[in-house]
Amino acid sequence: MSVVETNEAAAQVPENWEPKIIAFCCHWCTYTGADLAGLNRMNYPANVRVLRIPCSGRMNPQYVIEALNKGCDGVLVCGCHPGDCHYVTGNYFARRRMMIFKRLLEYEGLEPDRFQVRWISGAEAGKFRDTVMSVVEQVRALGPLNLTREIPYFELPAVPDGEEAFDAVPEEVVPEEVSA
């Protein structure tokens, strides 16, 4: 069925492997919450790198695909609580889009924990820390995300040669011409 064989590397977790997680955070709520976590000197794993976007409504699913494709082990998208969006409705659209997109990724075989969406307000420094900690732990438990990048080697069907090549006719061309 498949030209891709089980990726052997997936089973092996390299030594000193640390999960690499990117967090897309909305400027007004989650980024503020993350700053508050800093002000309160909270402690959380360093595996998460925050990328600031103005609003979760700005979150294009294509960024997630890029991150997973290029080697992140997990993606977190955070925004204001529904009803609290600085831009009124951004997170309502994001909620719909992310619900569909998450289901699509899981359908294609991504573990649900690798792509998470959370609403974290500017006051919820604790929730930000807890979310980061749980995401890191969940992704750590899953191991590295080994999405196949290159097309694996496979045998091409034999190309007809010599006399044979001359006679070879694509099989679908059925010689039953239409009379004008």
């Binding site: 990117i22 990328l51 960024y63 890029e66 991150a67």
Partner: peptide, 13 residues
């Protein structure tokens, strides 16, 4: 911009 965010993601990766 889409471009700047994409390059940011790439840089991180």
């Amino acid at each position: 911009t889409n471009e700047s965010i994409m390059r940011e993601v790439d840089a991180l990766c």
